[in-house]
Design a binder for these strands. Structure first.
Length: 554
RNA sequence: UGGGUUAUGGUGUAACGGCAGCACUACAGAUUUUGAUUCUGUCUGUCUAGGUUCGAAUCCUAGUAACCCAACCA
């Protein structure tokens, strides 16, 4: 009984192309513009492009689409490369559209010579006016029928820097009445006296996306050029340039971009969050950027699993954030080292435990044996979680309450004998007695308690800052709401606990390790941590059916 | 009022004229020294109206809805 794995539409196309002999091997490319950080939507595209090629024995190029020098920067180039590597992919070649500026210029000259391009002196306003609207045809520019020689000379002068920005553009000569707006004599070169991050001041004219992307694909002999749905109308132009230039016919295929609940996914919006200080930077753990997820503690494996599960299709989608979290927990549950940390402490005193005594207990690092064990110090006074005690317990309460018994994880069963409060009515201390024979691992079976709680020995406790993150937006689809998307930012997306108590083994924590603070969630060390100053980011909470039950009943 | 694209449970995604399946979510239960994990089960779906066919999510016709296109951005 072989499970037949169904193919997505791109895999079907590739298989058909391979089967028909159209291509012997396939070459894809990932083409980011270096003007921002990569986000989880790009991760989908990366997994798709690299994954598809790898599945069918092909390769993938990394090509920076750097045709607009005013918005692009090497900072972005570096971050993009780091993110792709971190995700676990290897590009066959690192290319730049700017590598092809000479060729692209020649292609433009070719079009002029064929009478398929012309220099237009119109202002951008005039060009826009003559462009028409989706329902009305455009009108020809007065410069449309310039002679080839004059066009050639003027284009050369554009390149030579004889004109100011915006004074002239080179346009393809197609059809001003075309039903596809992109075919109404699109601008293919514009003048920008700007410093380019790679070509410096060599050029003052730069090709537009449509005149760079398809040709770059063609130059690299990309077989399957995969992009998102909003480029569907561009395909006609893409094909037009390839045909008129008579160059290698790459083909463009489009898929639906990723949208995810409780976040925004456009670079423009993400840039706003950064520049307006709603987050601390592109790698703020609340950002849907790859660097943000990395800093928050996500693993490459979890993101790849997510990309696999969401599939690839051509319909608009809004993926539930919980699917990403599911993939994360699936991975972290296997690898995270279990440790104990108390985030909201209250003191527990074991009145029948010898004062000044310390026991060195052995605790497993996780349910799976390969994670090993570690030593955890135990003593008479412990920090426990304030929420693990209730003066008046509700039904089905498994934790501490006057008279109740709980297991202290990896240690003893204790029974609550009393508690103290301050004038404000706040619990300041809980007293209990322990049962020496109930020690963990002793094999005693007489203590059947429902609840197990975590703890940290008071004299051995280390302190750490803990950052708890919640979703960045209050609504499922902030981009679709009325008004400014920033009105929907969740004001409680970050909660900082200045002083949490953690077990001493965490002194050895590294950036590479993932931890589960038992019963509290998955955590990792933040990059801002210093020797003597531990800082942990909450990667994700654990599922909590108790909280769910309670909120459901109230 | 033009052109393009897409419609399958709450969310994604399969089916290629022949039993609408899988995953997430939600809910219920079992196990548990994490109210986690694990395991078992339950609910919910073919945009609408016609037609073709023994048989339609799939083919045809007509609608409807959503998204994209009028940057010298990509």
């Amino acid at each position: 009984m072989s499970e037949e794995k169904s193919l997505n539409f791109l895999e079907e196309i590739v298989e058909a192309d391979l089967a028909s002999g159209k291509y012997k091997f396939i070459l894809t490319r990932f083409p980011p513009e270096p003007n921002g950080y990569l986000h989880i939507g790009h991760a989908k595209s990366i997994c798709l492009n690299f994954g598809l090629a790898a599945t069918y024995g092909g390769q993938t190029n990394l090509r920076f689409d750097d045709t607009n020098p005013v918005t692009e920067d090497t900072e972005y180039v570096d971050s993009i490369k780091e993110d792709i590597r971190w995700l676990g992919f290897h590009w066959a070649n690192e290319f730049y559209a700017s590598d092809y500026f000479d060729t692209l210029y020649e292609y433009a000259v070719t079009l002029i010579k064929k009478g398929l391009a012309y220099v237009d002196d119109s202002s951008s306003e005039e060009i826009a006016k003559l462009k028409g609207t989706p329902t009305e045809p455009g009108k020809d520019s007065p410069y449309r029928n310039r002679g080839i020689d004059e066009n050639l000379r003027m284009f050369e002068d554009m390149k030579a820097g004889k004109y100011a920005d915006g004074e002239k553009v080179l346009r393809a000569k197609i059809d001003m009445a075309h039903s596809n707006m992109l075919m109404r004599d699109p601008i293919i070169y514009r003048i920008k006296h700007a410093h380019h991050h790679r070509t410096g001041d060599t050029w003052c004219i730069y090709p537009m996306y449509d005149f760079a992307h398809g040709q770059s694909d063609s130059i690299e002999r990309i077989t399957h050029s995969i992009c998102t749905l909003e480029f569907v109308p561009h395909r006609e132009l893409y094909d037009w340039f390839i045909e008129k230039l008579g160059i290698f016919p790459s083909h463009q295929y489009e898929f639906a971009r990723l949208n995810m609940t409780y976040t925004v996914m456009s670079k423009r919006k993400l840039l706003q969050l950064v520049t307006e200080g709603h987050v601390t930077g592109w790698d703020d753990p609340r950002m849907p950027t790859i660097s943000g997820f990395r800093r928050k503690g996500y693993t490459p494996e979890s993101i790849r699993m997510f990309a696999e599960k969401i599939g690839v299709a051509r319909r608009e989608n809004l993926i539930d954030l919980s699917l990403l979290e599911f993939c994360l927990r699936e991975d972290l549950n296997k690898r995270a080292l279990r440790v104990m940390a108390v985030l909201d402490p209250v003191k527990l005193v074991i009145t029948n435990y010898e004062e000044g005594k310390t026991e060195d207990l052995i605790s497993e690092n996780g349910p799976d044996e390969h994670l090993g064990t570690r030593h955890v110090p135990f003593s008479r006074e412990l920090w426990i979680e304030r929420e693990d005690f209730m003066e008046v317990a509700p039904k089905k309460w498994f934790r501490l309450a006057p008279g109740s018994m709980v297991r202290l994880k990896s240690a003893y069963v204790v029974q609550c004998t009393g508690y103290s409060k301050d004038e404000a009515g706040r619990v300041t201390e809980i007293q209990c007695e322990y049962f020496p024979e109930s020690r963990s691992g002793s094999g005693s079976t007489e203590f059947q308690v429902k609840g197990t709680i975590h703890w940290v020995s008071v004299p051995h406790a280390e302190t750490a800052e803990v950052r708890l993150y919640d979703r960045l937006f209050k609504v499922e689809n902030p981009a679709a709401e009325e008004g400014d998307f920033k009105e929907y930012i969740n004001p409680d997306s970050l909660q900082v606990i200045e002083k949490a108590y953690v077990e001493p083994s965490l002194l050895l924590a590294t950036m590479d390790d993932r931890y589960q603070f038992i019963r509290k969630g998955y955590f990792c060390l933040d990059k801002e941590a210093q020797p003597g100053k531990m800082i942990f980011n909450r990667t994700a909470t654990l599922k909590d059916t108790w909280v769910k039950q309670q909120s459901g009943e109230s």
